[in-house]
């Protein structure tokens, strides 16, 4: 994922507790507002951050029960892109093995869940997932 200069940077370490994803979404909102992103784009970033946190909370099985989130405002002279990196130290997964949810099937299935990655990819400009036995890192970005 392309990088410009880091104009502003915030790092959060959140415990995997109910509703802690809202703390991450508030930080994303503050930085996106600093960048003067449109309100619709800010909402999209907020929702993607919430989904990425929830995925980590629900599926990582991280021993430390924490997720680290790095927010970076990138640009050469003015803010151009908000990049958010969510890292956990869980058991990892193979992104290629994740089945894309299809509404027709989900309506009939016992479990209606499994939408997080699809939503993140649909709302953000770029999404990269690196995952292995020592954890998962999701890097996602949105341009101003």
């Amino acid at each position: 994922m392309a990088r410009g200069a880091v104009l502003r940077e915030v790092t959060l370490t959140l415990p995997m507790l109910p509703d802690m994803e809202i703390a991450a979404s508030k930080t994303a909102t503050a930085l996106a507002e600093f960048m003067e992103m449109s309100s619709d784009k800010i909402d999209e970033v907020r929702m993607a951050v919430v989904e990425a946190c929830i995925n980590s909370f629900e599926h990582s099985h991280a021993g430390d029960q924490k997720v680290q989130i790095e927010f970076a405002v990138l640009g050469d002279s003015k803010p151009e892109k908000l990049q958010i990196t969510i890292t956990d130290t869980g058991i990892g997964f193979s992104p290629d093995d994740v089945e894309e949810p299809i509404i027709e099937e989900k309506l009939k299935a016992a479990s209606k869940r499994g939408w997080g990655l699809k939503i993140i990819k649909g709302l953000m400009d770029e999404v990269e997932i690196r995952s292995g036995a020592t954890g998962t890192t999701v890097v996602m970005s949105k341009s101003r």
Partner: peptide, 20 residues
């Protein structure tokens, strides 16, 4: 409501299934 998450939406899908 200004924010939802996919777990909440999955419950809405259950309601849609029931309505169908």
């Amino acid at each position: 409501t200004k924010i939802v998450n996919s777990i909440g939406i999955s419950i809405l899908i259950e309601i849609i299934e029931k309505m169908l």
